[in-house]
Computed example of a mutant assay.
Amino acid sequence: MLFGENRDPYLEHPGSLWLLHWMLAGKPGRATVWHWAFNEFHEPTFDRELMRRRLHRRCDELSESGRLGKERTISDITIRRDVECLVRTYFALPGGARRAPEDSIECPLAELGLIQKAGVGELYRFRRGPKSSLPDEVFLFALLDFWRTYYAARKSFSVDFLTFERGSPGQVFLLDEEAVAERLVRLDALTDGAVRWDESSGMRQLYGHKLESIDEWGLLRAMYDRDLRRGAA
C-alpha cells in the first residue's frame, strides 16, 4: 500500500512509521526480537548488555522447550547484533556525535521516540505515554489485527487488557491506560458504531458489534488521501 500504490513512498506521513512499527513488533513471526522487546522485556531502564542477557535467557528457554526447532540454538553474536540493531532502529545518535560514515544514516523509526536515554552513559528506557503523532486509523488497524488474530470469538475488552496484554496496541505502541481510553472513545465515530465504548456500568469496556463491516485498509487509504491533499493545499 505504501510503496506499491505510491501512497507514501518517502514516509512523510507519521502514520506510515507507526504502521511499519506495528508490522515489525505486533506479531512474533515477523521480527522476533522486536516483538519480544516491546511485549516481554519490561525493565524500567536498560543497557544493551542487560537486554542481551534477558534475550539470551529467553532464547535458551525456547530452545529447551523445543519451540526454536529441534536442537536449535541462537549464537551470542547473533543476539548482540539484533540488540544493537533494535536500539539503533528507535534511538538516534545526537547530531554532534562522532561516528563512522556508514553509521550516519538514522532509521526513520527513531522519530517515534519509543526508546530514550535514561540518564548518563548507555542507559535507555522505553517511553510509555500518549503518542500525539499516532493516527486513530493506525491504532484501529492494529486493534483489529490483534482482535482478529488472537481473540476472534471475543466480543469485548477492558482498557487494561488493551493496554498491557502481549501483542495489544497499547503494549506495542507503549501507550498508557488513559491514552488508550481516549482513543477507544473515538472509535465509535470512526467505525460507524461497529465498535462501541461503554463505561456506564463503571467498567470501561470496548464492545465489537459488526467487526466484519470495518474496512481498515479503506480507512487507511482515506487517511492518506485526506492528509496528502491537505498537505498539498
Rank of each mutant, 00 (worst) to 15 (best):
T149R: 13
L190R: 05
G167F: 03
R148N: 15
H21N: 06
D176C: 07
A118V: 01
L93C: 01
H209G: 01
L68I: 08
G26D: 03
R204K: 15
E111M: 11
S65P: 08
E49T: 11
A118D: 14
E178S: 12
S132E: 13
V138Y: 09
D47M: 04
G170W: 00
G231K: 15
R54D: 11
G121P: 06
V185H: 07
K117Q: 14
W197Q: 06
G113E: 07
S133H: 11
R88S: 10
E177D: 09
L86W: 12
E5N: 10
P130Y: 01
L184A: 03
G193I: 11
R204T: 14
E102T: 06
Q116C: 10
G4T: 10
L184M: 09
R54P: 00
A31F: 15
E43V: 04
G96K: 13
P130L: 01
Y207C: 01
L228V: 08
K210Y: 10
L62G: 12
Y151F: 15
E216W: 05
P169R: 05
F41P: 03
R230Q: 13
E216Q: 13
K70N: 06
G15E: 09
L219W: 06
C59H: 14
R154C: 03
G218F: 08
S156H: 14
G202M: 12
M51K: 02
D136W: 07
S200D: 11
P169V: 06
D176K: 08
H42Q: 12
G129M: 07
L140S: 05
F41T: 00
C59L: 12
A142W: 04
Y151A: 05
E84M: 05
G202I: 10
A189W: 07
L62D: 04
K210A: 13
T163C: 07
E137M: 10
R48G: 15
F164R: 11
P94N: 07
D145H: 12
F141D: 07
L2S: 10
L134K: 06
D136I: 09
H56L: 09
I77T: 15
S156A: 13
T45F: 05
W197D: 08
R128L: 01
L112M: 07
H42R: 13
L184G: 07
C107M: 04
G113W: 07
R57A: 15
T163S: 09
R98L: 11
R204P: 01
A179D: 12
M23Y: 11
Y124D: 04
E49V: 13
I105W: 08
R226C: 06
C59D: 04
V185D: 04
D188W: 11
R72D: 03
D188L: 10
W147R: 08
F173W: 09
L20P: 04
L2D: 12
P9I: 09
E177N: 01
R52A: 13
G69H: 04
W34M: 02
G29Y: 13
E71Y: 11
G121S: 10
K131I: 02
W34A: 14
L68F: 08
D136S: 14
K27P: 00
L55E: 00
A179P: 05
W18G: 06
L50A: 11
P44S: 10
